[in-house]
């Protein structure tokens, strides 16, 4: 009993509200990192590189969605806004003014954070379904604006001008996809590190409280609205980074695709499939769904796109029936059981 109180005091002083990850988890993490670093040399086909780049990209995008939905409990259906803003910021600056996409990346992040405030301050007062509906509509409105806006290419979109002089400065690699792979890996790793830190911080801790019980959190003195807006900003900034990298990867910006509700919903599906509110759920969801859509496209040709959506639908229904907290919970449960046995 005494020991319990003492450890509580210590925990209070050291701010260790979350236990450190166990050693075996660190070992798995290190092994996974090594595998990811070696991947392009083990699987050398361009298709293998492409698939993995998309997995990493979507893992980052789904994590960004997870920050808002999984941690602060707000379902956004307009996340494609930030994806598109990221892609357009870097491309407009480069195509029109010759500014390096690295600077464009930062501009995109700032614009997306500003957009998150503009959207979040009025809409985050809404709870539950109403926030989802509002973001869905704002998302389509932004898409329509970009489809009509002549200065940014309207419906035909923009091309990223080809620049072969300095690949790292202009963020374009035409010989191989491997540099893109490592860039995406670094971006995703940074994103996940940020979220890991965030989740363990006092801020993240309060977010989970307000997700679980809005009124109780407010009555304890947590400034609920401010926390939600700040979370939305962080999330939008992460999504924007993914947008810039995507633009530099495909070199064509199509507002139909970039601002589509399909992207907003895809990141939702991945997160829910993997496990929303968890750190690794979004990555797991991306690792399941991206290969599914890429392979179905190969096997079934142009119509592959719709078949993969049918499979997504079936998967989501199955997850909702058997694993409402996501695929990751299957593993978590095993680990917990083993722990309690030993």
């Amino acid at each position: 009993m005494q020991g319990g109180t003492a450890s509580m005091l210590e925990a209070a002083k050291a701010e260790h509200l979350w236990p450190r990850p166990p050693r075996w988890a660190m070992a798995i993490g290190a092994a996974a990192a090594a595998l990811l670093l070696a991947y392009p040399f083990v699987f050398t086909s361009s298709f293998a590189h492409h698939t993995m780049i998309l997995i990493l990209l979507y893992a980052l995008m789904a994590q960004s969605w997870n920050v808002v939905a999984g941690f602060s409990g707000q379902i956004s259906l307009g996340h494609a806004i930030f994806f598109g803003l990221g892609a357009y910021s870097s491309t407009v600056l480069f195509a029109k003014y010759g500014v390096t996409p690295w600077a464009g990346l930062l501009v995109g992040v700032l614009l997306s954070a500003a957009a998150a405030v503009a959207i979040g301050v009025p809409t985050l007062r809404l709870r539950g379904h109403y926030f989802a509906i509002a973001t869905l509509l704002i998302g389509s409105s932004v898409q329509i604006v970009f489809q009509r806006w002549e200065w940014v290419g309207a419906a035909s979109g923009l091309y990223v001008p080809i620049e072969r002089t300095s690949p790292w400065l202009y963020l374009q690699f035409h010989r191989s996809k491997v540099p893109y792979y490592y860039l995406m890996l670094a971006a995703a790793a940074l994103g996940y590190l940020l979220v890991w830190k965030l989740r363990r911080s006092r801020f993240g801790f309060r977010l989970q409280a307000l997700r679980d019980d809005h009124d109780a959190a407010a009555s304890l003195g947590i400034a609920v609205a401010r926390h939600k807006v700040l979370t939305f900003m962080i999330s939008g900034a992460m999504m924007s980074v993914a947008g810039t990298f995507y633009g530099q990867y495909v070199l064509v910006l199509d507002p139909e695709r970039l601002f589509s509700a399909e992207i907003s919903i895809l990141v939702l599906l991945m997160t829910v499939l993997g496990g929303s509110g968890t750190l690794w759920g979004p990555a797991l969801g991306a690792a399941v769904l991206i290969p599914l859509s890429e392979y179905s496209r190969i096997w079934l040709g142009g119509t592959g796109r719709t078949v993969d959506l049918i499979i997504y639908g079936v998967l989501i229904v199955l997850v909702c029936m058997w694993r409402p907290s996501g695929l990751l919970s299957v593993f978590e449960e095993r680990i917990r059981r083993r722990r309690t046995v030993s």
């Binding site: 407010a218 009555s219 304890l220 003195g221 947590i222 400034a223 609920v224």
Partner: peptide
């Protein structure tokens, strides 16, 4: 005062 400013 907003809710969160009353608890303190």
């Amino acid at each position: 005062r907003p809710t969160h400013a009353r608890a303190p």
